[in-house]
Amino acid sequence: MRRMREEPAAEKPSPFLIRPMTQGDMPAVTALEQASFKNPWSPELLRRELEHDWSTILLVEEPQPDESRKLLGLAIFWIVQDEVHVLNVATAPDQRRRGVARAVMDEVLARGRARRCVLATLEVRRSNEAALGLYKSLGFRPVGVRPNYYADEGEDAIVMVLDF
């Protein structure tokens, strides 16, 4: 009897659009940062990241019925030599648990693989259980601790690495 080859399950298309940030996005990105963090990135820091060749800011948006787009989240990362370094991932508080951070991290890692990177690194607050869970599910593993990394509250950062 001949065996039928199983077809992989069709991937559900993402409801999100992911694109690079532009200067025109600054007001919306600044508002997202302020809503997401006690110590948000300043417009000046964001502007500097936009100017660096090695830095990318990706925005996650959702198309709206009126043809506009709603900003849901972002990721800021560097690709230097053969490494992806994630500096910041933010999701609007009212959009959490929808897969926004996973979608943007999947894109960040895909871009690293396309550039033939061999590893990805990041730091995450020890208390951020949701982010730790996400990063572990993506294959990151904890490799160290940076004591008092988050100076605002003296909180440690967990250093995580993903080998491609």
Rank of each mutant, 00 (worst) to 15 (best):
V108C: 11
D25Q: 01
Q23P: 01
D152V: 09
A120Q: 06
L59G: 01
P8E: 13
L109E: 06
G133Y: 07
R98W: 04
A90K: 10
P20R: 13
M1E: 15
P147Q: 12
S127G: 05
R141N: 12
L109Q: 07
R19P: 00
L17Q: 08
A28Y: 02
M105L: 10
A35V: 04
G112V: 05
L162V: 04
I158T: 11
M105K: 04
V60T: 10
R116V: 05
D82I: 08
F16C: 00
M160V: 11
R146H: 13
K136H: 15
S127C: 04
L71R: 03
P147V: 05
A31T: 12
M1S: 14
M4W: 13
M4D: 11
V60M: 00
R141H: 09
D53K: 11
L162W: 09
R126V: 15
A103T: 01
C117K: 08
V108R: 02
E129H: 14
N128W: 09
R141A: 15
A9L: 02
L59F: 03
I57T: 11
I76E: 11
A92Y: 06
T121K: 06
D66G: 07
S36G: 12
V80H: 05
T91W: 02
D106E: 14
D53G: 07
E153K: 13
M21N: 02
Y135S: 00
P147W: 08
P40A: 03
L32Y: 04
E155Y: 10
R146E: 10
Q95I: 03
A10Y: 00
L162I: 08
Q81Y: 13
G73R: 01
I18L: 06
A103C: 06
P142W: 03
I57V: 15
F16R: 00
E153I: 14
L132C: 14
G73K: 02
D66T: 08
E61Q: 11
S42Y: 08
M26S: 07
Y135N: 07
L122Q: 03
S68E: 13
D94I: 01
V60L: 00
V89R: 00
A35G: 09
V161T: 10
P40T: 12
P15L: 03
R19W: 02
V161Y: 07
I76A: 15
G112Y: 07
R102V: 00
A75H: 05
E129M: 09
D25I: 06
A101S: 10
K70S: 06
F140Y: 15
